[in-house]
Write a protein that binds this DNA or RNA. Structure first.
Lengths: 335, 335
DNA sequence: CTGAAAGCGCTTACAG
DNA sequence: CTGAAAGCGCTTACAG
């Protein structure tokens, strides 16, 4: 592989017999250039194999055409969908996106933020880890470029945010179970430090209270937000003296784990025990049985976050926006 | 949001009372600096909130700390896993990764490549679209920075490659079905222009031939590589005069679609008709019934590609490498 | 449209 | 360790 020297705008200008300033205008799509000159220069670019150096341009003009997206785990279909939304909106607007995955590690999140800032991203969309340490909250606060939080908020950090109303979603799910006659309903999965969990819990509790049911703390079990987490959580709750007849899960992933755990125990989800998830992943209708769940519009959250970020980049002064999408219950066979 | 002026290395040097050259050495982790000076400078950096400008540094030193990863669709768990592998290896090595998704569009692929080159990526890992046009092949050939192809090769493009032996994998899958007594085995999904499809087909055919079975072209149906594609493909093959008793699918996603299609038709996958997939996604064991499939080591392909790219960046002169992983059959209840 | 100069924030190379 | 200069590939601003 031979290493060619990079072709510069000066080379192009020389080749086309124009000044560098003119070439620069053309590469940026200025309309003030005579069509004939423009074609001449474009031909030269093509001939020389010129590649515009956006990095140099951004540096000189103190701008940026990149954006950072930080999520917790791409293996979670929720985030895969969110990423789709972000990419769709952002690439259309001409940004190139850096992707970082934290695997819910606080430290990793800090590293990624630093890395992206060092790379002069124009803004960051951050889906925070579920438990932000004090350090990492300070880190986020110290970000002095456009920042949009998605999915989870961080306490005491005020900036643009897109998420859904988890409390309402949880309430819908639990109400549904109550209407089906269930009185012992567990809430499984997630970690109590995250706002996303607290909100779900609050919705879960309101629904129970409204129905005149007591809250039984033994029916609330935290777990990692994975299939494995769900399998573990259902086990803990299944073998107690007075087991639940229905389960509201932190998300579909956990719900899937719960179903697998039930199968292991010889129980049929949807028949022996009702299961409701949260997210409405692409896979939810395909589970066995198809999963009743709350749609959390991952794709929409992503594209809204992207739009918010773009607007913030364009205008730093505008008021902070909070977009809270309303969830929707999708009833299937698991409940 | 107030817009602070960026703190430069010069500012840090002034604050710490050293020269810019010294500060530069320290920020790059040189060991030739007295510990005391170093601490003084690091303190100043912290105090001023200095953010290293990697973009400027890379530009001056004609290097790069970014890498581009181009995949077809993040909603395919195979690519989600591959991405995990890439990120793991690459972030460890200090790169920040640009992600682009083509959705199997040739044009999008060209755009993404151009964008990434304009952003001075140090190298690209490309999972090519399934049907590369002449134009886009030329585009790929014209890439004059380190390039690693993954998952699919492109004809007449010679560069580092990581993939698995699809032919062998397909053969294993079909052999397995033959041993279970099946004689009419369909091959569903994928598009015939991709090498990944051709190789699978070749493995499918060899297995049939070895067993003395004829190849029936009506049992080979192409489709998009999605669940929907699988649902469509099984429909086409199910209602013919002499339907198959087993199906080998392009991948797990297609297989899942096939299962859903069977359910729709009132048939039970694994009982009325055997189904085998390809990839061994995280979800494969969780399908109903659990899916027999060929493991394609997505994660490993990703991390190997990352390693290859890193090596190529470090040493442009080394010989082209081709890493072909050997697949493995994972037998579950669907066959 | 041209031309010459300055600057974005770094690294490089070198004399001291 | 310092200091001064040059340069990475662009854009900006301005006089002509």
């Amino acid at each position: 592989m031979t290493h060619k020297k990079r072709v510069t705008l000066q080379d192009v200008a020389n080749h086309a017999g124009v000044s560098r300033a003119t070439a620069s205008l053309i590469v940026r799509g200025s309309s003030k250039i005579a069509e004939k000159t423009k074609q001449k220069v474009l031909n030269s670019m093509h001939e020389l194999g010129y590649v515009y150096d956006r990095v140099a341009a951004n540096m000189r003009s103190q701008s940026s055409s990149t954006v950072g997206l930080i999520i917790t785990d791409i293996a979670n279909p929720f985030y895969a969908e969110l990423l789709r939304g972000v990419h769709h909106s952002l690439e259309e607007a001409g940004y190139t996106v850096f992707l970082g995955t934290t695997f819910d590690s606080d430290m990793k999140q800090e590293q990624l933020i630093s890395r992206m800032l060092e790379h002069r991203v124009g803004g960051i969309i951050l889906c925070p880890v579920s438990e932000s340490s004090g350090n990492s909250i300070e880190r986020v606060k110290a970000i002095d470029i456009p920042l949009v939080l998605a999915v989870r908020e961080i306490e005491n950090v005020s900036c643009d945010y897109v998420g859904i109303d988890y409390a309402v979603g949880a309430q819908m799910a639990v109400n549904h179970l109550i209407h089906r006659g269930h009185r012992r309903i567990a809430f499984l999965g997630g970690t109590s430090h995250s706002t996303a969990w607290k909100e779900r819990r609050s919705g879960y509790c309101s629904a129970l209270k409204q129905a005149g049911l007591d809250i039984d703390e033994t029916l609330i079990v935290e777990s990692p937000v994975t299939r494995e987490g769900g399998m573990g959580a259902i086990r803990k709750v299944l073998f107690q003296a007075n087991p639940p007849t229905a389960v509201f899960c932190f998300n579909d992933l956990v719900a899937h784990g719960v179903m697998l755990g039930l199968n292991d125990a010889g129980l049929k989800p949807g028949q022996d025990l009702a299961v409701v998830g949260f997210d409405n992943n692409n896979e939810a209708p395909l589970y066995n049985p198809p999963l009743t769940t709350v749609s959390s519009y991952a794709r929409l959250i992503g594209s809204q976050a992207a739009i918010l970020l773009h607007q913030r980049i364009v205008n730093q002064e505008r008021d902070t926006q909070r977009i809270i999408l309303q969830p929707e219950l999708v009833v299937r066979k698991s409940s």
